[in-house]
Design a binder for these strands. Structure first.
Length: 569
DNA sequence: GCCGTTTTCGGCCCGACTGTTTTCAGTCG
């Protein structure tokens, strides 16, 4: 899949053009780069099937960018990019990654002090050469050093599940003073990874709320502190932003602060077309506020039905809202069971009975204990003999417990040739079979696709576990022909899993959306290895919602009776 | 460079904070 590479080229082109003070093109390149990066289809496939015309269908891609994509696919190079790279020293655009430095200042530093990279920048700042420049006094030099500190630590995206508890903690602290506090930004949109924490508060005394915010024990330094907003750097190197607004602006501020940026820009364009102005303070006709207290009010006043935060990515939700055709999204409350969990039989921490009781406590009707299969030695995969023992144990627990049904399953390894590591005779004895890849992740696209299709064509397989096997910070997703895989999933009536483990979140949102469009069933599971991890369901449901899933698309919203029908195929 | 129920040319979201210099540019979200 060349999408990330192509997106990265356009981002870099945007940076260079911005340094050269070129107007608007950077905006256009970044927009196209984002669209390509989030795409579920492989641009190479799009081009091979439909040529330039098909490429132009991608939002933000016009004829010029389409030509550049084609050029990259054909020749592995974009001439315009090669030319741009030569126009400025390599490394200069890395200055843009230093917080506080933008294209104007970076270019000035290059012209006046011959600063070509971050090393030069640090040296110049330490030698106090920067503060001697016009427009750059002592404060700016100090801020550059602070910015370099942040740059060096790397402002990488962190897992949703890592950031959420910190956001909750900030929220709780601010609630002592503010009338209302909400988590906004990409956290509220449930993106699988986030860069910072955005908090919105309602208060008539904003300064007092901001004071609490900047004084939190885990705040390392204050980046900005004004009368309505403040930004801080946390001790874990994440940035947190707080915005404080009056009650009458709460909805508009929530809308603004939730994003995404592209979604907001589209909304503001709609407002302009209607002779209105949308900002975080409300929707205005001239001076008069026509909406803003609630988000519903803002969307409705723009002629749209309310759009759930998870959908706000400018990927078709605005058009759907205009027509009133948004899906009714699945929610955690709809979930009747978890179909992929581990017990102490393989590599889990808890007994089957403990897992079952924890599931009951969550209000589930059923839970499937799917321990690893025999070839997964590292995770204590079950031999046939142990599997028989486990089947008896499940029977015992079901006799003992009321109000929860334990299903006996297995997470069966998909071997290199697409066969499974238990025979059909064994699989037949299980309630639920989840088939997953745990080895040989790097295979040519055709081979990996054939391998997965063969696995799910097995009549005893119900769910394809973590379909792409991506793992944040460890492993890229396998290069699968998604179109072919989804067609096969539909044909064999196999559900694709959304694995809610925070470092997986696999299948990802864009693929889920595509699967739902095709009528492929989804199963949202936690892959819990302890009772505590059953809570990850919240994150998997976030992915499902971002993928436009309704309740009916998700098999584990079925009642036990309906679900048993699905299992028979 | 993209895009079009006010445009195929002329627009391109809106506002806060900071640092510098006295009214604003640059940066950020």
């Amino acid at each position: 899949m060349k999408n990330p590479e192509i997106a990265s080229i356009f981002f870099k082109m945007a940076d260079i053009l911005e340094m050269q003070n070129v107007q608007w093109k950077p905006v256009a390149y970044r927009k196209a780069a984002r669209a390509i990066g989030e795409l579920s289809e492989d641009v190479e496939e799009i081009y091979k099937k439909g040529g330039l015309k098909a490429l132009k269908e991608i939002p933000g891609v016009g004829i010029n960018i389409a030509n550049k994509i084609a050029e990259f696919i054909e020749n592995g190079k974009v001439r315009e990019y090669e030319k741009l790279k030569k126009s400025i020293p390599a490394g200069l655009s890395s200055l843009l990654e230093v917080p506080g430095l933008g294209p104007k200042k970076a270019m000035l530093l290059y012209k006046k002090l011959k600063i070509k990279n971050v090393q030069d920048l640090e040296k110049a700042a330490l030698e106090h050469r920067i503060s001697k420049l016009p427009l750059f006094r002592e404060k700016t030099e100090e801020n550059i050093l602070k910015g370099l500190d942040i740059y060096k630590k790397g402002r990488e995206r962190v897992l949703l599940a890592y950031a959420m508890p910190i956001a909750e903690e900030i929220k709780t602290a601010l609630e002592k003073k503010a009338e209302r506090v909400e988590i906004a930004g990409s956290l509220r949109r449930m993106r699988d990874t986030v860069k910072d924490i955005d908090i919105l508060a309602v208060s008539s005394k904003p300064l007092e709320v901001i004071q609490i915010f900047v004084s939190l024990p885990f705040v390392k330094s204050v980046i900005a502190k004004g009368e309505t907003k403040s930004s801080v750097l946390l001790s874990n190197s994440m940035q947190a932003d707080l915005r404080v607004v009056p009650l009458k602006s709460f909805g508009a501020a929530m809308q603004y602060f939730t994003g995404s940026k592209d979604h907001n820009i589209e909304l503001r364009k709609i407002a302009i077309a209607k002779g209105l102005k949308l900002s975080e303070y409300g929707l205005f006709r001239k001076e008069r506020q026509v909406a803003g207290k609630t988000e519903e009010e803002v969307y409705n006043a723009l002629g749209l039905s309310y759009i759930e935060p998870e959908l706000r990515e400018n990927t078709g939700e605005i058009e759907a809202a205009l027509k009133g055709k948004l899906p009714l999204l699945v929610s955690v409350a709809d979930i009747k069971g978890d179909l992929h969990c581990h017990s102490a039989y393989s590599d889990g921490d808890n007994t089957i009975e403990e897992m079952a009781l924890a599931a009951k406590k969550r209000g589930y009707e059923y839970i499937c204990i799917s321990d690893h299969s025999k070839s997964e030695h590292i995770a204590n995969g079950l031999s046939e003999q142990m599997l028989f023992k486990k089947i008896e144990e499940v029977k015992r627990v079901n006799k003992k417990l009321k109000g929860i049904r334990v299903l006996c399953g297995s997470e069966v390894n998909i071997l290199e040739d697409g066969s499974l590591d238990y025979s059909d005779e064994i699989l037949k004895k299980l309630d639920v079979v989840v088939a997953s890849v745990h080895s040989k992740f790097r295979m040519p696209k055709e081979e990996i696709t054939a391998r997965l299709v063969k696995a799910i064509s097995n009549p005893y397989v119900h769910i394809l576990g973590h379909p792409t096997s991506r793992h944040f910070g460890k492993r890229e997703e396998m290069g699968i022909d998604m179109e072919a895989l989804m067609n096969a999933a539909k044909k064999y009536n196999v559900a694709l899993e959304i694995n809610s483990a925070p470092a997986r979140m696999d299948l990802r949102d864009a693929y889920v959306k595509k699967a739902v469009e095709k009528g492929v069933k989804i199963s949202v599971n936690t892959d819990a290895h302890s009772t505590d991890e059953l809570k990850f369901m919240e994150y998997g449901i976030g992915v499902a919602r971002r993928g436009w899933c309704s309740k009916n698309d998700v098999i584990n919203t079925y009642s036990l009776k309906e679900f048993m029908k699905f299992l028979k195929k």
